[in-house]
Amino acid sequence: MQFFIQLSLDGLTIGSVYALVALGYTLIYGVLKLLNFAHGDVFMVGSFIGYGVLQALGGASDPVVPVWLLLVLVTLAAMVGCAVLGVVIERFAYRPLRNAPRIAPLISALGVSFFLSNSMQLEFGAQQFNYASYNLSGGALYFHGFDLDHVHIPLLRIITIGSAFALMVVLWFLVNRTRTGKAMRATSFDREAAAMLGIDIDRVIVFTFILGSALAGAAGVMFALRVPTFAAVGFTTGLKGFTAAVIGGIGSIPGAMVGGILLGCAESYTAGYWTTAWSDLVVFSILIAFMIFRPQGLFGRVDIRKV
């Protein structure tokens, strides 16, 4: 039972990271119908920005600001940096291809992904960058926390999961309770009709990229607080994020959250009860099973195509 709780906690942590990445995929897919392969690399860039800011503020063991402010600043910097990156990518790599055949932006996205990961490797090398979060205020974020059935739950985990959920709530509010969110939903429902009703499609798309990329940046920091980050990390994480989005139902925000956490838990249980080597196999089997038996995902709606 203790082992199970430990694994669930692990799954929840990594799952909330997947969920944040999946949200970006879902949002962008919703408005552009584009599978943004570069999203995983935006996530990677976010974790690098976080690392840079962390080092600039004195590193984890000797920060110049209080720990809570340090975490907030690192996350905010990553979110802002990624938002800018997302807008630039949209402007230069996807907007010129808005009306091209569907395969064109996909290939362009592959190019962006390749460009980003190799640029980071060129500038920073292929080695791992460790946030050394166990040094934050002398390891207090690990010692403190509370016990559940003799399993110690460190504070950092709670902060990570909590802030991921807080971000999701903010996103839900933005999408469902604001004018821009309404425009986003309209655009994702029917782009042409939305444009005819006077919605500025370009603005909505830019806004979507800002939201999605900022979430990816936050996810990058949360990921790197747990394990070291490196230039090639974006590819696999992006793939899993997309799988989470598919499981939840592409275009559905609660779906992406549930999908991410399901995926994280599945991976964690596989690693704990079987072997880490085959966790990809399990993820892939889940994806295939969903594609065959429930292609619209858990929360997606069935797409009816009119000819």
Binding site: Y29, L35, I103, L239, W278, L281
Partner: peptide, 30 residues
Amino acid sequence: PSRRLSGDYLAIVTLFFLELFETVATNGNQ
């Protein structure tokens, strides 16, 4: 499995297959 899928889903399934192939090849000694 990608019979019913449009371009993007097909892309992701095949990409995952590539990852899976690498996993199997790397861990195929056990």
